[in-house]
Amino acid sequence: MKRILIIEDDPMICHELKLLLDDHGYEGIILEDFEHALDSILKIRPDLILLDIQIPYLDGEILLQRLRAVSNIPVIMVTSKNTQLDEALSISYGADDYITKPYVPNILLLRIGAVLKRMDVSTDKIFYKDLTFYCRKGILANGKEEIILTKNEMIIFNYLLMHPSCIVSRDELMTELWNNDEFINDNALTVNISRLRRKLKEVGYADAICTKKGQGYLLL
Protein backbone atom coordinates (compact mmCIF):
# COMPACT_ATOMS: atom_id res chain seq x y z
CA MET A 1 0.00 0.00 0.00
CA LYS A 2 1.32 3.44 -0.92
CA ARG A 3 2.01 5.66 2.06
CA ILE A 4 1.19 9.33 1.77
CA LEU A 5 2.44 11.90 4.26
CA ILE A 6 0.17 14.86 4.99
CA ILE A 7 2.01 18.03 6.02
CA GLU A 8 -0.69 20.50 6.95
CA ASP A 9 -1.31 22.51 10.10
CA ASP A 10 -5.09 22.58 10.15
CA PRO A 11 -6.17 19.55 12.22
CA MET A 12 -9.60 19.22 10.58
CA ILE A 13 -8.15 19.10 7.08
CA CYS A 14 -5.50 16.62 8.19
CA HIS A 15 -8.15 14.36 9.64
CA GLU A 16 -10.41 14.52 6.59
CA LEU A 17 -7.53 14.11 4.16
CA LYS A 18 -6.40 11.01 6.00
CA LEU A 19 -9.94 9.60 5.84
CA LEU A 20 -10.11 10.32 2.12
CA LEU A 21 -6.76 8.66 1.43
CA ASP A 22 -7.53 5.66 3.62
CA ASP A 23 -10.86 5.19 1.82
CA HIS A 24 -9.16 5.15 -1.55
CA GLY A 25 -6.53 2.53 -1.04
CA TYR A 26 -3.68 4.61 0.36
CA GLU A 27 -2.28 4.91 3.84
CA GLY A 28 -2.46 8.49 5.07
CA ILE A 29 0.08 9.59 7.67
CA ILE A 30 -0.18 12.93 9.45
CA LEU A 31 3.02 14.78 10.30
CA GLU A 32 2.98 15.77 13.97
CA ASP A 33 6.39 17.26 14.56
CA PHE A 34 6.76 20.39 12.45
CA GLU A 35 9.88 21.52 14.25
CA HIS A 36 11.93 18.64 12.89
CA ALA A 37 9.86 18.15 9.75
CA LEU A 38 12.75 17.12 7.52
CA ASP A 39 14.03 14.44 9.90
CA SER A 40 10.53 13.07 10.34
CA ILE A 41 10.02 12.84 6.58
CA LEU A 42 13.26 10.96 6.14
CA LYS A 43 12.35 8.64 9.00
CA ILE A 44 8.82 7.93 7.68
CA ARG A 45 10.00 7.52 4.05
CA PRO A 46 6.58 8.02 2.46
CA ASP A 47 5.80 7.30 -1.22
CA LEU A 48 4.35 10.77 -1.66
CA ILE A 49 4.01 14.01 0.31
CA LEU A 50 1.10 16.44 0.33
CA LEU A 51 2.68 19.69 1.43
CA ASP A 52 1.03 22.96 2.43
CA ILE A 53 2.98 26.20 2.00
CA GLN A 54 1.81 27.85 5.20
CA ILE A 55 3.06 25.55 7.93
CA PRO A 56 4.61 26.32 11.33
CA TYR A 57 8.38 26.78 11.81
CA LEU A 58 9.42 26.40 8.19
CA ASP A 59 7.75 27.72 5.10
CA GLY A 60 6.58 24.84 2.90
CA GLU A 61 8.66 26.09 0.01
CA ILE A 62 11.83 26.14 2.11
CA LEU A 63 11.08 22.69 3.46
CA LEU A 64 10.67 21.51 -0.14
CA GLN A 65 14.03 22.99 -1.12
CA ARG A 66 15.78 21.31 1.80
CA LEU A 67 14.03 18.03 1.08
CA ARG A 68 15.08 18.15 -2.57
CA ALA A 69 18.69 18.48 -1.49
CA VAL A 70 18.55 15.01 0.06
CA SER A 71 15.66 13.11 -1.46
CA ASN A 72 13.40 12.90 -4.50
CA ILE A 73 10.20 11.69 -2.84
CA PRO A 74 7.34 13.02 -5.00
CA VAL A 75 5.73 16.13 -3.54
CA ILE A 76 2.35 17.67 -4.36
CA MET A 77 1.91 21.20 -3.05
CA VAL A 78 -1.58 21.69 -1.63
CA THR A 79 -2.22 25.27 -0.71
CA SER A 80 -4.64 28.16 -0.70
CA LYS A 81 -2.09 30.48 -2.32
CA ASN A 82 -3.35 30.56 -5.86
CA THR A 83 -1.24 32.86 -7.98
CA GLN A 84 0.62 31.58 -10.99
CA LEU A 85 3.80 32.92 -9.40
CA ASP A 86 3.43 30.68 -6.33
CA GLU A 87 2.87 27.73 -8.60
CA ALA A 88 5.84 28.50 -10.81
CA LEU A 89 8.06 28.94 -7.72
CA SER A 90 6.97 25.65 -6.18
CA ILE A 91 7.54 23.77 -9.40
CA SER A 92 10.98 25.34 -9.72
CA TYR A 93 11.81 24.20 -6.18
CA GLY A 94 11.03 20.67 -7.31
CA ALA A 95 7.34 20.03 -6.59
CA ASP A 96 5.77 17.41 -8.83
CA ASP A 97 2.34 19.02 -8.88
CA TYR A 98 0.48 21.97 -7.42
CA ILE A 99 -3.17 22.00 -6.31
CA THR A 100 -5.03 24.93 -4.80
CA LYS A 101 -7.53 24.75 -1.98
CA PRO A 102 -10.40 24.16 -1.96
CA TYR A 103 -9.85 21.23 -4.31
CA VAL A 104 -12.38 18.80 -5.65
CA PRO A 105 -11.49 15.58 -3.78
CA ASN A 106 -11.75 13.49 -6.97
CA ILE A 107 -9.28 15.74 -8.73
CA LEU A 108 -6.88 15.53 -5.79
CA LEU A 109 -7.05 11.72 -5.94
CA LEU A 110 -6.51 11.85 -9.67
CA ARG A 111 -3.40 13.99 -9.34
CA ILE A 112 -2.03 11.74 -6.60
CA GLY A 113 -2.63 8.73 -8.84
CA ALA A 114 -0.94 10.46 -11.76
CA VAL A 115 2.17 11.40 -9.79
CA LEU A 116 2.51 7.91 -8.31
CA LYS A 117 2.02 6.38 -11.75
CA ARG A 118 4.79 8.53 -13.17
CA MET A 119 7.13 7.07 -10.54
CA ASP A 120 6.05 3.56 -11.48
CA VAL A 121 7.08 3.02 -15.08
CA SER A 122 6.14 -0.62 -15.37
CA THR A 123 2.43 -0.07 -16.06
CA ASP A 124 2.35 -0.93 -19.72
CA LYS A 125 0.60 -4.26 -19.13
CA ILE A 126 -1.99 -4.99 -16.48
CA PHE A 127 -3.27 -8.47 -15.79
CA TYR A 128 -6.87 -9.23 -14.95
CA LYS A 129 -7.51 -12.89 -14.25
CA ASP A 130 -6.33 -14.61 -17.45
CA LEU A 131 -6.62 -11.45 -19.53
CA THR A 132 -3.79 -9.11 -20.43
CA PHE A 133 -4.65 -5.44 -20.81
CA TYR A 134 -2.21 -3.39 -22.86
CA CYS A 135 -3.16 0.02 -21.57
CA ARG A 136 -1.09 2.04 -24.07
CA LYS A 137 -2.68 0.30 -27.05
CA GLY A 138 -6.08 -0.32 -25.48
CA ILE A 139 -6.04 -4.02 -26.36
CA LEU A 140 -7.49 -6.75 -24.22
CA ALA A 141 -6.15 -10.23 -24.99
CA ASN A 142 -6.70 -13.70 -23.54
CA GLY A 143 -4.15 -15.62 -25.61
CA LYS A 144 -6.59 -16.64 -28.34
CA GLU A 145 -8.35 -13.46 -29.28
CA GLU A 146 -7.80 -9.75 -29.00
CA ILE A 147 -10.42 -7.09 -28.37
CA ILE A 148 -9.81 -3.46 -29.19
CA LEU A 149 -11.30 -0.99 -26.73
CA THR A 150 -12.22 2.57 -27.68
CA LYS A 151 -10.48 5.38 -25.82
CA ASN A 152 -13.36 5.91 -23.39
CA GLU A 153 -13.74 2.20 -22.64
CA MET A 154 -10.01 1.99 -22.16
CA ILE A 155 -10.02 4.87 -19.65
CA ILE A 156 -12.90 3.32 -17.71
CA PHE A 157 -11.42 -0.18 -17.67
CA ASN A 158 -8.00 1.11 -16.71
CA TYR A 159 -9.47 3.12 -13.84
CA LEU A 160 -11.41 0.09 -12.56
CA LEU A 161 -8.26 -2.04 -12.77
CA MET A 162 -6.25 0.53 -10.84
CA HIS A 163 -8.80 0.40 -8.01
CA PRO A 164 -9.26 -3.30 -7.35
CA SER A 165 -11.92 -4.25 -4.80
CA CYS A 166 -12.99 -0.59 -4.43
CA ILE A 167 -16.38 0.75 -5.39
CA VAL A 168 -15.74 3.35 -8.05
CA SER A 169 -18.41 6.05 -8.24
CA ARG A 170 -19.72 7.40 -11.53
CA ASP A 171 -18.40 10.74 -10.40
CA GLU A 172 -14.85 9.39 -10.19
CA LEU A 173 -15.12 7.77 -13.62
CA MET A 174 -16.49 10.98 -15.03
CA THR A 175 -13.62 12.99 -13.52
CA GLU A 176 -11.10 10.55 -14.97
CA LEU A 177 -12.70 10.78 -18.41
CA TRP A 178 -12.86 14.57 -18.36
CA ASN A 179 -9.28 14.64 -17.18
CA ASN A 180 -8.40 12.78 -20.38
CA ASP A 181 -10.18 15.38 -22.51
CA GLU A 182 -13.25 13.21 -23.04
CA PHE A 183 -15.98 15.65 -21.97
CA ILE A 184 -18.87 13.18 -22.16
CA ASN A 185 -22.29 13.39 -20.50
CA ASP A 186 -24.13 10.99 -18.20
CA ASN A 187 -25.84 9.06 -20.99
CA ALA A 188 -22.60 8.53 -22.83
CA LEU A 189 -20.99 7.12 -19.69
CA THR A 190 -23.83 4.60 -19.31
CA VAL A 191 -23.49 3.64 -22.98
CA ASN A 192 -19.72 3.23 -22.66
CA ILE A 193 -20.05 1.02 -19.61
CA SER A 194 -22.58 -1.26 -21.26
CA ARG A 195 -20.33 -1.51 -24.35
CA LEU A 196 -17.40 -2.38 -22.13
CA ARG A 197 -19.53 -5.05 -20.44
CA ARG A 198 -20.48 -6.51 -23.83
CA LYS A 199 -16.83 -6.68 -24.85
CA LEU A 200 -15.85 -8.34 -21.59
CA LYS A 201 -18.65 -10.84 -22.13
CA GLU A 202 -17.08 -11.80 -25.47
CA VAL A 203 -13.95 -12.92 -23.65
CA GLY A 204 -15.94 -14.77 -21.05
CA TYR A 205 -16.32 -12.28 -18.22
CA ALA A 206 -19.98 -11.35 -18.48
CA ASP A 207 -20.37 -10.16 -14.90
CA ALA A 208 -16.98 -8.59 -14.36
CA ILE A 209 -18.37 -5.13 -13.75
CA CYS A 210 -20.97 -5.18 -11.05
CA THR A 211 -23.30 -2.24 -10.41
CA LYS A 212 -23.72 -1.09 -6.81
CA LYS A 213 -26.93 0.84 -6.82
CA GLY A 214 -26.49 4.46 -5.81
CA GLN A 215 -22.75 4.02 -5.23
CA GLY A 216 -21.03 3.04 -8.42
CA TYR A 217 -19.25 0.11 -10.01
CA LEU A 218 -17.06 -2.68 -8.72
CA LEU A 219 -14.69 -4.80 -10.77
CA LEU A 220 -15.05 -8.36 -9.52
Binding site: I13, L19, L20, S80, K81, K101, P102, Y103, V104
Partner: peptide, 18 residues
Amino acid sequence: WVHEVKIPLATLTLMVKN
Protein backbone atom coordinates in the same frame (compact mmCIF):
# COMPACT_ATOMS: atom_id res chain seq x y z
CA TRP B 1 -9.14 36.53 4.28
CA VAL B 2 -9.73 34.60 1.06
CA HIS B 3 -6.89 32.23 1.87
CA GLU B 4 -8.21 31.73 5.37
CA VAL B 5 -11.77 31.11 4.24
CA LYS B 6 -10.59 28.53 1.73
CA ILE B 7 -9.33 26.28 4.50
CA PRO B 8 -12.74 25.59 6.06
CA LEU B 9 -14.13 25.36 2.51
CA ALA B 10 -11.58 22.65 1.73
CA THR B 11 -12.45 20.85 4.97
CA LEU B 12 -16.16 20.95 4.16
CA THR B 13 -15.61 19.63 0.63
CA LEU B 14 -13.57 16.74 2.02
CA MET B 15 -16.18 16.04 4.68
CA VAL B 16 -18.96 15.78 2.11
CA LYS B 17 -16.87 13.31 0.14
CA ASN B 18 -15.86 11.27 3.19
